[in-house]
Design a protein around this nucleic acid. Structure first.
Lengths: 217, 217, 217, 217
DNA sequence: AATGAATGAGGTTTCATTCAT
DNA sequence: TATGAATGAAACCTCATTCAT
């Protein structure tokens, strides 16, 4: 497979470059924050030189925007599809939805995006507003519907649905933020799988009409 | 026209300056992030000129460190005192402790510090480690003790205590982060008091030995 | 006059700096052109560091604009005053006016500005339009009035006044451009004084009602 | 689908390319100045890609040199031929020569070259020196000869011939510079033909032994 | 012969820090 | 003690030039 010829100094990869750059940018932006991130570091991680970044994105801010706008909405659409196709108990649907977000975002590098937006909301209010409306509120609206159905049919106890949704997903979100902040510093890093199991159990118990006493088995 | 006494060009305020600067720095750092924060903005909010900052702190990074190290530990000591002095049900103590953190941190400007550390952990690992150990883990250890007592005496159901603590406080922490990121962008900003009441209710239900069915009143 | 103390590394000269910077910028821009001029070179000639430029002007382009807008209009006002105050032959007024422009602009560093605008008109059309209207056309209008008076009273022969003005001043303008382009390369540089005398003589002869046959002695 | 013959991706045009590139380069350099001119813009106007420029010229500067060296000298040779072949009044020859330059340079895109050299003399002194000697001074020498003959035979009045030549052609040169700077910004652009007629009239009157009072018709 | 993706030197601009006043 | 003008390192960005295709 390796060529006898000396390897060329660079390769043309016009198709793959944008995604490679976005991946690298995500990693660096999440780690350092937007302002402290150096474009040269992004370039290096993508395996290109500084100037190449500008062939695909008009600047650092553009990179951030592309990052945020391209990545999460598709995941959300998965979850919306789940909701449309589901029939049965609200509890089961709720579990499915949270599980999908967990697998699709929390466990993937995409989890960096919420952390990034949290950090940068003050500097990019417009982008933050987009994220708030197109991702966060859209997600909440979806879950709220399920939550209200469950309350209506007696599966869940009566709670202010808008708040209940935020509180229900809070433990999952915290894990996402943890992963990109203090987890690398922990002596024994958080076991994400166990955490999710217990969090789901506790969150469900928190809204259950009756004590479920389910254990985390 | 020149008066030896009246209206000096500046005032000696050696006593109050450091805290005024720290307050200003906290506000700016939380809003913009450390790297994007400009020292001139900090100075302006403290009502002094750029150069004056250097009379009290050796530089920008020093300001960050002083900020983090000085502010939260005292609050934590309050909570530790509560625990020492308490006798009675674990549930009541848990509520007292969470309530103290909520009033003392979440509702005060100090709430900016966790947000700030979350954002900057990647750039200041040493400072983050300090915060992790001196604040976060210390807080968790305290709550874990209460949690385990409650499990032992049958008030709470059996759960992995370390995880249960993180999950229990997650909704409160989310509110703290929300306050400093998307809340200013919400059309009708989150009602923190109502949120706290529901969150406490749900979190307690999540660990209760039996369904409490308590409502948020 | 020289102080025994070691000379300080820099001096505060907030009052003088802007003009010093404008002078330096004029020299460098005229010599190199706007795009090829390096801001560091401007700073060096003004005796400051790169960053200092930005304390007084928001950027390179701003420097150019300030340069063009501040410098020539006052000279023009001198000429307008001459016209207002004059009584007598049109020919004498014309000479006075051209002489004023020659002394005030052509022989001063201000002569660089027309050269600069000529070169940069394509890149800064808005600034060029300002210069065209506020300087060039205003100047022409002034001269045209005198020219038409002279034609009316028989001092000058009948010519299209708008064109005659442009042509009349062309030799002076050429000297200005020459000074900032090829003159430094000439083995024996153009003698500006002699040039002006002959040019004025020829230009006057070009519009005179009768041959003047004046020599340049 | 692949056809060996039809619609090749590019065409060999080795013969025409260099001149097309020079034409494009002239236009862009004159409009923007050398430093601000982007090679990609030159390539686009020539209908090729950036890399192709380097197949014909070794770089941007080379393009400038080729431009200047190739274009004007031939025009000058035309004028020299006129002078050799002429017999008759000096005035008529002078008119012929100026007219040839006007038609051959001022009205053609070649007029950009003097404007370009004027702007870039400071950055390319060597090239400027070439232009000064091979074009400007050579042209002046030619005209000076005619001018001196005319003075000797009484057609023209006695003037310092070197200066008289510069001044005589100044109005034509000004039109050339005007065309490439402010003329595109004028509401009603200068009528070049009328300008030339009046300029020639005035310039001739300026050197005439007696008042000619010739009108422009 | 031609393309255009990739490079990297070199410029502008920002801002933490210093220091003359 | 306080100021804010001045500094200069470090970042972003541009674009002439190279080179894989």
């Amino acid at each position: 497979m390796q060529d006898v010829e000396a390897s060329p100094r660079w390769q043309r990869r016009a198709e793959e470059r944008p995604q490679e750059l976005l991946d690298a940018a995500l990693a660096v932006f999440v780690e350092r924050g937007f302002a402290a991130a150096r474009l040269e570091e992004v370039a290096k991680r993508a395996g290109v030189s500084k100037g190449t970044v500008y062939l695909y994105f008009s600047g650092k801010e553009e990179l951030l925007k592309a990052l945020v706008q391209s990545a999460i909405v598709p995941q959300l659409e998965n979850v919306e599809a789940l909701a449309r196709e589901h029939s049965g108990a609200s509890r089961e649907l709720l579990i499915k939805m949270v599980d999908a977000m967990w697998r699709g975002i929390a466990l993937s590098p995409l989890s960096g995006i919420p952390k990034l937006m949290l950090s940068e909301a003050g500097n990019f209010p417009e982008l933050a507003r987009f994220f708030l409306e197109a991702v966060i509120q859209r997600h909440w609206a979806l879950m709220r519907q399920v939550m209200e159905e469950g309350m209506a049919n007696g599966e869940f106890r009566r709670l202010p649905a808008d708040l209940a949704v935020r509180i229900f997903v809070a433990p999952m979100m915290m894990a996402v933020f943890w992963k990109h902040s203090f987890m690398p510093l922990e002596e024994t890093p958080l076991d994400m799988e166990r955490y999710f199991a217990v969090a789901l159990d506790m969150s469900l118990a928190g809204i259950a009409a009756q004590a479920t006493n389910s254990t985390t088995d």
